[in-house]
């Protein structure tokens, strides 16, 4: 298991390198450039700026310089945000985004699995019957509708939680954004868990377990739950990708100083260094999430562990 994990972690590096290389060239091939959209700059100023950031050099040279700097941990300076080092921007924003993402993931997985199980335990009960329509509504509503709606009800009318904004060390500020981000996850995971658990409960080994007189609770927790979670875990990879894109909207709806805005800003302003910094961060996170899902899968099912290449 440990060897498998190490091999998979080592496998991340080349994937990341390919991702960075493709992004590096694609963003530069896109029409426009860092200073093209800015106020009318004289041709000379623009040339000076390009020279200063090394943008006048051949692409291959820029790429080599980028890799060299990256190897030393230097992500470069933003073009648009007053020469701020990209590493510094990420360092300030990432904790907020990561906290939001982790909270949403935990909330989504735990309550999704709990709801799915509850629906199965009481077949045809309130939760079971409400699950499908509620999930459909939650998945259909975009988070820029759910977010303000929650802020209106919980923040403005009930005054339980702040409407928006963020102060350091105040977890209360993250509650509404995390719920907004987690709702579609809860819906998907609850439905996955329900379907998968129903199937597993029909398996021959569940009948064998019941024939041993183990009792319903033990059969469910010890024999049924782990196999039933396999599809849920496979969904965690795509869920992580959803969290990255979802956080862009949620952070802006709730005015959180996370890193989501840099991705949008960097892309619009053609702020190459900022974009590359964000690609590195989100690429790594997505790959790690997928790796985590695979490792969990191996833990859930010994057959995967033994077949692993």
């Amino acid at each position: 298991m440990l060897g498998y994990a190490l091999r998979r972690i080592a496998g991340i590096v080349p994937v990341l390198l390919i991702l960075l290389t493709v992004s590096f060239f694609v963003i530069r091939l896109a029409p426009g450039g860092p200073f093209a959209a800015a106020r009318a700059l004289s041709a000379r100023t623009r040339a000076e700026l390009r020279q200063r950031y090394g943008l006048d050099r051949p692409l291959a040279v820029q790429y080599a310089a980028y890799l060299r700097a990256l190897a030393h941990g230097d992500l470069g300076r933003s073009y648009s945000l007053r020469d701020e080092p990209v590493a510094g921007l990420i360092g300030a924003g990432l904790p907020v985004s990561a906290e939001l993402g982790a909270a949403a993931l935990a909330l989504g997985a735990l309550s999704g699995i709990a709801l799915g199980m509850a629906a199965v335990l009481r077949r045809g009960g309130v939760i079971d019957r409400a699950l499908a329509p509620l999930a459909a509504v939650t998945l259909a509503l975009p988070s820029f509708v759910i977010g303000p709606l929650l802020a209106l009800i919980v923040g403005v009318w009930l005054r339980w939680l702040p409407v928006a904004g963020w102060q350091p060390d105040t977890p209360r500020d993250l509650v509404l954004p995390a719920i907004t981000l987690a709702l579609p996850l809860i819906a998907s995971i609850a439905r996955l868990t329900r379907a998968s658990l129903l199937e597993v409960l029909n398996a021959s080994y569940i009948r064998t377990a019941r024939a041993r007189g183990l009792g319903r609770a033990r059969v469910l927790w010890r024999h049924a739950l782990r196999p039933a979670l396999v599809p849920v875990v496979s969904y965690l990879g795509p869920a992580a990708t959803y969290l990255v894109t979802g956080s862009l909207v949620v952070e802006s709806v709730f005015e959180l100083p996370g890193t989501g805005r840099y991705l949008v800003m960097g892309a619009i302003d053609r702020d190459y260094t900022l974009v590359m910094g964000m690609v590195l961060v989100y690429g790594t996170l997505t790959l790690l999430a997928n790796l985590g899902a695979d490792l969990l899968h191996a833990w859930l099912d010994p057959r995967v562990r033994h077949e692993a290449p």
Partner: peptide
């Protein structure tokens, strides 16, 4: 169910067809 659980596996043993699927895989 509770009374049955006290008998099943204790006083009554069962073996089903399909040995390939009858054991919990994990």
């Amino acid at each position: 169910e509770r009374a049955l659980d006290a008998l099943r596996g204790r006083h009554i043993g069962l073996v089903f067809q399909d040995p390939m699927g009858a054991l919990t895989p994990h």
